[in-house]
Design a binder for these strands. Structure first.
Length: 223
DNA sequence: GGCCTTCGCCAGCTTACATCA
DNA sequence: GCTGATGTAAGCTGGCGAAGG
């Protein structure tokens, strides 16, 4: 699967994607949507953080703020070291992975979709990235794969639904036609006598020959 | 052995930024 | 050059299993 495929599949503009997203929002009250759409859009991550910490255990809150600090110091250290990112910036600058880095990560993902800590560190060294970046890339990649699969499933179910709807319409038309035929005075002349013996309510020891080919079996059952 | 806490990892959701038409 | 749409790196939170006390 190449990047083009992925970018195509990731368009949330499709009705399918929108449907899935709205379903998830309704179903699972995450911290992000506790405050509703307004709360979500108003002040971003700060708001989410505040909401989340009210419900977290103290140890977890401590751990998370320590992680945050660690990330911040790591990021600023990387900036000072003069890596790919701009130097000395405290604000988050978005890094684009190079083609080579992406290709290697893709290759690795093909082999295994999750990484153990050793693999993560090795890969990070090889790519000159932080282990956290490798971890995040794999997380996002799994999410993309899952989203793509969901869209494929959604398309398949949509087609199934369309086919069944069409089949249902066709059968209803058939029933109407047959009812009309039954009401017409020429009905009993058109239907061979032997087929009438198949009606269960009329089944009183009449001779039962095999249904004729003039009408499909389903149409002979209930008129 | 059961309970509690902590830790690490992950999924899901979201944001911020880069890129492109 | 501006703008909206899209893609994606990264942040945040909750859930869960494992390990240790």
């Amino acid at each position: 699967m190449d990047e083009k495929d992925l970018s195509l599949s990731l368009s949330l503009g499709s009705s399918c994607g929108q449907f899935l997203l709205s379903c998830r929002k309704d179903a699972s009250p995450t911290a992000a949507n506790v405050g509703g759409v307004d709360g979500m859009n108003r002040s971003g991550s700060t708001n989410m953080r505040d909401i989340g910490e009210e419900h977290e255990s103290p140890s977890r809150t401590k751990r998370r703020s320590a992680e945050r600090e660690e990330r911040e110091t790591e990021a600023s250290a990387a900036g000072k070291a003069g890596s790919d990112e701009e130097e000395g910036e405290t604000t988050r600058k978005k890094l684009r992975l190079t083609r080579e880095q992406s290709a290697i990560l893709e290759e690795s993902f093909k082999e295994h979709t999750t990484l153990n800590p050793k693999q993560k560190i090795a890969l990070a060294k090889q790519l000159n990235l932080r282990p956290r970046q490798v971890e995040v890339w794999f997380q996002n990649r799994r999410a993309r794969t899952k989203l793509k699969q969901t869209e494929v499933d959604c398309e398949f179910l949509k087609r199934c639904c369309e086919n069944l709807t069409e089949e249902n319409r066709r059968l209803q038309r058939e029933v109407l036609e047959l009812r009309a035929l039954k009401r017409s005075p020429h009905f009993y002349m058109q239907v061979p006598a032997t087929t009438l013996t198949l009606c269960p309510s009329c089944e009183k020891g009449e001779a039962s020959e095999k249904p004729t080919a003039s009408l499909p079996f389903r149409q002979q059952i209930r008129l």
